[in-house]
Structures are given as structure tokens and as C-alpha cells.
Design a protein around this nucleic acid. Sequence first.
DNA 1: ATCGGCTCGCGCAA
DNA 2: TGCGCGAAGCCGAT
Length: 462
Amino acid sequence: MPSFMKILTNQKRQRLLNEAPAGDGAVVYVMAREQRIHDNWALIRALEIAAERQVPVLVLFPLAPMISTSARHNEWMITSLREVSSALAVYDIPFCIEYGDWEQSIPGFVKRHDIGEVVFDFNPLQPVTEWVNRAAALLPVRASMVDARNIVPAWEAAPKAAFAAYTFRPRIHRLLPEYLTEFPPLKQPTVPYSEPVPPVDWEVLRAYRACDHAEPIPNSFVPGETAASAQLARFLANTLPEYHLTRNDPNEFGVSALSPYLRWGNISAQRVALAVRAVLGHPDAKEAFLEELIVRRELADNYCFYTTDQLSLASMPTWAQATLEKHRSDPRPYLYSYETLAAAATHDPLWNAAQQQMVEQGKMHGYLRMYWAKKILEWTTDPETAIAYAIQLNDHYELDGQDSNGVVGVMWSIAGLHDRAWPERPVFGKIRYMNYAGCKRKFDVKNFETRYANATPTSLFT
DNA sequence: ATCGGCTCGCGCAA
DNA sequence: TGCGCGAAGCCGAT
């Protein structure tokens, strides 16, 4: 393509959120889920609008009080945002923080800075969707969201929640040629913002959300955009070549270890996909990884985007609701409290080791996440409790927690989402069953148990 | 070691 | 209306 031709963002990545007209003032990108400055379609689109209108651009991070957090998530966010802030400064783009509920803080910011248009990044998780909709409805200027998370925008990929991966996969593959494209380079705004912007007080940010600051933070991952690119490079060089052979063995370093970075938006899945496509390697390895990176990841956002009650059994397929209802009162072989589970103190050494890996390293191996969640269904009083405990543990300890992939992973394991019926048995009904014997058939269970029985296990992710 | 049966319903071909 | 097939299953038979 000749260099004088301007590459514009595909307009289908953007969705209007209100009917107000754009004003004359600056464009603000409301950064929330995508904590990076490169390869970010929401920022790119905000810069494009500003260039067309010859107005400045600001980036706003609106921190709401009511999401619970853990020390590890709080620190990850702060480190990511410090990097965003200094990287934006190089491009002369102001970075601002607002505290409070979005329906107050965002309209307040818009009024104070005489903003002409607002661009949100897309997040289908409840309650964030509600926050965005309410804030946008109160704004006197045009507001939109840009899907900077998925390669194929969630509203373009499918018109409804997909029944399973096989109904979603062909749609994604059909649309990839249109959307899996190179990003335009990040450019300085043509008009700088001239008003003074107060510097961020990082200690105020750290203290804003309540959490146990004494809780240990895993040192197995370095947060932020630079570290994310470094991890991608390591993955491509060391792990991708045998990905298809080693990914399901929890004893191997066979995974990308990119999920925390993808969760915080420190790296774009589109950038990862372009890099994997470009590298030489075994087609099976590349195909297996791209299936997870693209189809399975975007299926999770598809479920959340089209489902209001994301953790409710009522949102599950009919067969799954019926079978869990039928087996609701089945006696459970063991019953554990949340505290016993969190302390990795069950009778099952493999389950305890998986739980321990999550607590100490902030990331449980993907294969074990299924076994882990299914055992919570088996060892708690009812499916609702199992879902609540699994989500609470996931969202507290996993560095990639509080994300659509966690929601769908838990609902797949416990409640049959995107899965099919299997032979009926106690407690599970027709939900796919997994057990210790199956794990022994597939990998060296004793080795994994030994590794995570100690207080400070060797990290598999660094 | 490998294989068939278990079980449901979507989406498409006919 | 019939048919193929699906994220990682388990289990018993061969």
C-alpha cells in the first residue's frame, strides 16, 4: 500500500453508545480494560477522530470504588498504568485518573475539560457494561465503544450467544481476513492539549480500592506492556515450537504464559496472532495456539456480550439446567468450606497442588483449571455455591482473573456451557466428569504434587 | 494401547 | 427430516 494512503480503523470496530452530537472540544479515550498504548484500536480511533476534527486527545482512567480487588491485582494495575502514563507523555498525550462511580466521574470530567467526544474500550463483563451504558446516556456529547480486545469485534462475530465453539469457529475464520490486519503506527496528536493536567498521585491510586495489602504478591510475572512483549518473544522462541505436544502437561513449560498480559490489555491478541502467523514453525503448533488465542478467547467475550446473568444457571443450555436440577440433592462425597478450599486443605493432593500453584504463582495451568473447578462442583452443597466459590477463588488469585475467560471456564467446567451431555452419574448428572485417574493417565501427577507441596515451589512461568 | 458407547442439539444439506 | 459432529470425559472390553 502506498505510504500516502491513510489506513483508517475499520468502522465496524466502533459502536455508538448514545445519540448526542459531537462537540467542539478534545476527544477523550476512556481506558479501562486495555492498559497499553500500542496496538490499541480504541486509542487509534480516538486519535483519528481528533485528527479529522483538529482537536487534542486525552486519556482518562476512571477508577470505580466498588469492584473488590486483591493486592496482586491492585499492584498489576498500578504498574501497568505507570507505564501507560510515561509512554503517553512521550507522545504528548495527557493521562488522567478520576475516582468514583462512572456515571458521576466521567460526565464530570467531560464538563470540566470541555470534551467533545468520548471513546470507551469494550468490556462485556457485568457490571462494567452497565456502568458504560449509564455514563454514556448521561453524556452531552457523542460516546462510542471500540472493541480493542477481540480481533473480530464481538458484535460482528455473531448476532447472538453461540451454542458451542463449533457454531462460532466458522464465523471467526470467515471474518479473519477482514480484521487480522497490521496496526497503523501510533502518532503524536496534531493538536496538543494546552490546559495543565495534574500529575497522578500513585499512592492515592494504590490506596483507593480496599484490599489486604499484606497478602503476598507472586513474583512469577512482571506486569506491563514492555514485559508483555518480552514474554511474547520468549514464547515464540522457546515454547511455541512444541506447543501442540506439551500444552496439556502441567509439568512442562508448554504454555504461552500470556494470559495475565491479555487480561490486563498489556498486549493485543491481534499483535500476538500476527506474530505467531509470521514465525516459522510446525503448523499443528501454530494452529493449536491460534485456536485458543482467537476462537476460544473470543467465544468467551461472545458469551458475556450476549448474556446478562453471566454466572446464573438460568443462562446455561436446557439439558445442563435440567440435569443439575435433577442431581441437586445427591449426597456429596466431601463438603468443603471456602476457607478450606482457599487454604488448599482438601483430601486430594493434586487438587491442593493446583490450588497452591494458583495462590503462589498467580496462574494455574490451564488443563488443571478444569479438574479443579469440577471438583468444586463435587465437594460443595449445590451448583450455585460451586460457581460462586470457583469464581471468587479465580478472581482473587489468578492474575488473569476477573475476565470473561474465567467466567466461561468456570461455567464450562461446572455448568455445561458450550459443552454437550455425557453419561449420567451422581452429583454431575450429564455434566462432563473428570477424575484423578484420568489425570494419572495423562501426566505425571506425583511429580506435580511434589513440586507444589512445598511452601515455595519452582516457578513454571518464568 | 486402542476402541466403542455413553448423550444432546445445532446447523446445514436435502 | 436426517445427519455429522463437537475443548481437554470416563470406563470396560479387546
